[in-house]
Design a protein around this nucleic acid. Structure first.
Length: 225
DNA sequence: GCGACAG
DNA sequence: ATCTTGTCGC
């Protein structure tokens, strides 16, 4: 069994305690090297059966071609609680990750990292658990204050927690609703923004997120019907 | 007390 | 997250 899954919290209170301890270990430091491979992480659910599918897709950072993928099928073990998202999604994500043949240089999570009420979103937890660079790229706001960025691709506005910047609202496509980028672990916000833009040449969401989402969706459908 | 609330 | 077709616009 994975070390991270030993003594995994079963209650909200225990999860909050663990979150507080782990949040202190997050490091916002530059990447050691430009990522050659980037991973997308996603989980899909079937409420009726309690079944879940987690998937990781690994893309060549330059060409965005798929170079590896892994899927894990399991059951829901923690409720959806805003702010405790990682306790629901991280365990199945780690199970999928262990099946990969290629170790990704960076993970892009479908959710937030530091832009979280206690500065410990899924991307922080995953980066810490794998001791690997990770960022959050979420579709909607969770925490913090921000203004809308300019309408052009690449324009961004800070996400603030008081006077501290915890992320950026980033326009990945001109005239399209922006995404919410924050660091998870072992990377800087500027690098996270650059990686997100490079991974989103054509659509609003990074190709990593899109391929992982496509995979879980497909597998959930064939597992149910 | 009243909203807001990743997926 | 998920239930879900056509339709408006470039």
């Amino acid at each position: 069994m994975l070390n991270e899954l030993k003594n995994w919290p079963k209650t909200e209170r225990d999860a909050l305690d663990l979150q507080a301890r782990l949040a202190a270990e997050v490091r916002a430091v530059p990447l050691n090297k430009p990522p050659e491979t980037i991973a997308g992480v996603d989980v899909a659910y079937n409420d009726a059966t309690g079944l879940l599918i987690a998937a990781i897709t690994v893309l060549d950072a330059k060409t965005l071609n798929l170079v590896d993928q892994a899927v894990f099928e399991g059951k829901v073990d923690f409720p959806y609680v805003p702010g405790l998202f990682s306790f629901r999604e991280l365990p199945p994500a780690l199970e999928a990750d262990r099946q990969l043949k290629i170790r990704p240089d960076l993970y892009i999570c479908d959710g937030h990292g530091l832009a979280h009420p206690r500065h410990f979103g899924l991307a922080c937890h995953l980066g810490l658990a794998l001791n690997t660079p990770a960022i959050g790229c979420a579709k909607t706001h969770l925490y913090g204050t921000s203004c809308p960025p300019g309408e052009l691709r690449g324009e961004k506005a800070p996400i603030l927690d008081g006077d501290t910047q915890i992320g950026a609202v980033l326009r990945t496509q001109t005239g399209v609703k922006p995404v919410y980028v924050s660091i998870g672990h072992l990377i800087t916000l500027d690098e996270a923004v650059a990686v997100t833009l490079n991974a989103s040449p054509k659509y609003r969401l990074p190709e990593t997120t899109r391929s992982a989402d496509q995979l879980v969706r497909q597998r959930l459908k064939q597992a149910s019907g």
